[in-house]
Design a protein around this nucleic acid. Structure first.
Lengths: 245, 245
DNA sequence: CGCGATTTTGAGAGCCGTCAAGATACGTGG
DNA sequence: CCACGTATCTTGACGGCTCTCAAAATCGCG
């Protein structure tokens, strides 16, 4: 578990324009709050379902997947964690994670001691507010996924998921030359959408044949996002400036 | 929109043992924060999807349903709001609700002005923390529903939903003589579980025939909750003391 | 007593799941 | 640079869980 320290004030993420700017006092506090950084390889389990972690994390780089499993092995992906997302909040609040988290790529995480979360609320209410904001945003993402899994057809689900994730990557500046480095497998996508792997593959093949998505290996490209959104019967919300801790 | 005022310190809900006790200062603040009460009939739309409400609500009595819809009318219920639950937090944070909320029974709601939510964080960090707690709890409930809709069979889904809602009602002291006043229709249950009404009805009939659930009209009774949980492949988490605003 | 909402039931179709096998890509060691 | 094992992706066949359509039976309520 190698750790190192980079000053928050030099953190390149605060400068992305999808994130809200912090003032100097807040940054100073976060720098003090920060315990270190954590680097993990792709495939590393970060937090298990039910885990009671002493740390809270913010994703700096990389992707992770959040999922729950039934005892017999059936797995359902809840969501994906990308830069700016919090990992481990539930453990901080309830002493137990409701889902497991696993790295999909090499990741760089910012580590905060959970026992000090409380002082964050006391000393910087604005940051406490930000934590609520992020928790509520997770709730909103989950709601969209629930609508997708509950009421969209297989074709719509796949269109929705690819459009959605491409959009998130795009907002984070991860799309270069129209391409996104996409660490999701079809098996993962199937578990995200409540579909079987085989049916996911066949439906995806059709979407690909129609030219709506171009996904080979780890490279995802979406020629016409609006067209894909139409297929998914989805509409983009207005972009929000998010807090970044 | 009739309103009246009852002192928070006399609010009977703080005494339920599923809720965390507030100290005198907190109660005094909430009393000041509180704008009034709202009484609505069953069937009243409280907040629409995308609504930007000036108020935030806490449910005092009654049930509401949170749902999202696709443009062609397909509906997915996210969750049910019961006493102690917050309604309208997303509007306070994002200027728009991600889901609609509608009363299923006559309801009594506590009304708070959204513009003062911020002062709550400033002046009573402990209450700001509680808001985060409640938001994160919603997230957790949504996760369970997503697992259910994505990976459980129709039989398991119905068993899960009835067991889950009966459990929540029970924790709130709503179960009397083993019976819960259950304002959910089969059509609503179908939309909760991502199933069709017809299949929901037939699967439910089987569960009923086997004696696992006794649901007639608005009265829900579950002879053996553990047996139903086994069918649902679910397990109860440890009961948590929740904040109540 | 009558009307709308809700629940039931039956029939038939289809979307999607399961099983099975092969093809392709990828990482590793020789 | 090639061989080989593993992960991932494809494809085909078949079955069934769940959907849709349709209509009747009940319930709730004024």
């Amino acid at each position: 578990m190698p750790t190192r320290r980079v000053a928050c004030r030099e953190c390149p993420h605060h400068r992305l324009d999808c994130f809200r700017a912090m003032n100097a006092d807040e940054i100073a506090f976060m720098e003090d709050f920060k315990r270190g950084e954590l680097i993990v390889d792709a495939g590393t389990p970060i937090l298990g379902e039910g885990a009671n972690s002493p740390s809270l994390y913010t994703v700096l780089t990389g992707w992770a997947v959040r999922y729950k499993t039934l005892e017999d092995g059936r797995r359902q992906v809840m969501n994906y964690a990308m830069p700016g997302d919090l990992i481990g909040l539930q453990a901080s609040l309830f002493d137990a994670m409701g889902h497991a988290v696993e790295a999909l790529t090499p990741m760089l995480l910012c580590v905060f001691p959970r026992e000090n979360v409380w002082t964050l609320y006391e000393r910087f209410p604005s940051l406490g507010f930000d934590v609520t904001w992020l928790a509520s945003r997770e709730e909103r993402l989950l709601e969209e996924n629930l609508l997708t899994v509950g009421r969209r057809s297989a074709r719509e689900r796949i269109a929705y998921a690819l459009w959605h994730l491409f959009g998130r990557g795009s907002a984070l500046g991860l799309v270069k030359n129209g391409e996104l480095d996409f660490p999701v497998t079809q098996a993962l996508l199937a578990d995200t959408l409540g579909l079987s792997l085989v049916h996911t593959n066949k439906t995806l093949a059709r979407l690909r044949g129609e030219g709506h998505v171009d996904w080979r290996g780890r490279r995802l490209r979406i020629p016409d996002p609006d067209a894909l959104a139409d297929i998914a019967r989805a509409r983009a919300g207005k972009p929000l400036k998010r807090p970044f801790l």
